[in-house]
Amino acid sequence: MPNSPLYFEDVEMGDEVGPIERSVTTGQVREFVQVWGARSEPSRFTDPDAAKAEGLPGAIVPGAMSMALMSQIITGWSPSMVLRKLDIVFRQTVPHNAPLKLQGIVTDKGVVDGRPQLECDVFMEDAEGTRLVIGKATVTVPARG
């Protein structure tokens, strides 16, 4: 994350956000599911056999955890960015322990209800460039002066 805040005037349509490269370990998913609570385990999120029994190739990252990862594209961009809305489409399952690339791109900017606002496409890709999760983020950002 940049040390200095970004302002509305600093951002242009087409600016890229990220990428963040990471993978989600099985241990991290187990911790997330524990905090998430109210799930019967083992499940497709934590156990490869349970996942395979449901026709999946292996254990998968929960959708709520993928959403949290996607939000980091914006929250890790600059301390001045405020994520107002994140609208996600899950296109494919997200596997454990695999390289993921999270990225955004500014697709619109304007003043809405008196507030400077950005819209960004956000997406999560696997190592082959296939988009597993896509979405749109609505972000407010301060203007100079």
């Binding site: 697709t107 496409d121 997406f123 979405g135």
Partner: peptide, 8 residues
Amino acid sequence: SDAHLVSA
């Protein structure tokens, strides 16, 4: 493109 996002 089969675009489902603006930038696609």
